[in-house]
């Protein structure tokens, strides 16, 4: 009962906040709504017994990625947008229609998911220790590859933003 109340409240707030990202004409406000949505996602992870991922979500998204977004927004001298949304009434209608149809398809497809048996095999406990064990044994190659990718991305981002004098170019 309490879990249901918490879940429905959380989903309501997350839906409203992500709609705020969509509809607010001010990018800074969009970023703030996004932070709150990320905190909501972290709480959902917590409800699903993934406490470590909830912490990582808070640190990586609410901490790092959103700060990056806000810094870039502040770097630009952004006025309130004249055109928030893409133009064309028919095009807009088509886009919203596509979104609604996609949502209906997704929700319909959930009922094709076979019923999961309660606690299929309780031998694997959902602990952070097991997560780390899996990450550093079975997935170690992918993990190292990811480190390489992040290095490449860091170099690429610096190279991209330093073309012709960086952000202070005339």
């Amino acid at each position: 009962m309490e879990a249901a109340i918490v879940f429905y409240g959380l989903s309501f707030f997350m839906t409203v906040l992500s709609l705020g990202v969509l509809f607010n004409p001010n990018p800074i406000m969009s970023a703030l709504y996004l932070v709150l949505t990320m905190i909501g996602v972290s709480l959902v992870f917590f409800m699903l017994d993934a406490g470590f991922l909830a912490g990582v979500q808070l640190i990586v998204y609410a901490g790092a990625v959103l700060v990056l977004f806000v810094m870039v927004i502040m770097l630009f001298d952004l006025k309130r947008e004249v055109y928030t949304f893409s133009r064309g009434f028919f095009t807009r209608l088509l886009k919203v229609f596509t979104g609604v149809v996609f949502l209906i398809i997704l929700v319909k497809s959930f009922f094709l998911v076979p019923e999961t048996k309660e606690l299929l095999n309780s031998s694997t406990q959902m602990t952070t220790k097991n997560l780390a064990g899996l990450l550093f044994t079975e997935y170690i190659f992918v993990f190292e590859l990811l480190g390489l990718l992040l290095l490449a991305v860091a170099i690429g981002a610096v190279a991209l933003s330093r073309i012709k004098g960086g952000t202070h170019a005339e």
């Binding site: 989903s11 997350m14 839906t15 992500s18 709609l19 990202v21 969509l22 949505t37 959902v44 947008e81 055109y83 928030t84 949304f85 893409s86 807009r92 886009k95 919203v96 596509t98 979104g99 609604v100 996609f102 949502l103 997704l106 929700v107 959930f110």
Partner: peptide
């Protein structure tokens, strides 16, 4: 919940400039 948030994100990409 995840489907609703996904579609809102999709509409953000499609509709915003």
């Amino acid at each position: 919940l995840s489907a609703v948030i996904f579609v809102i994100g999709m509409l953000t990409v499609l509709l915003r400039r």
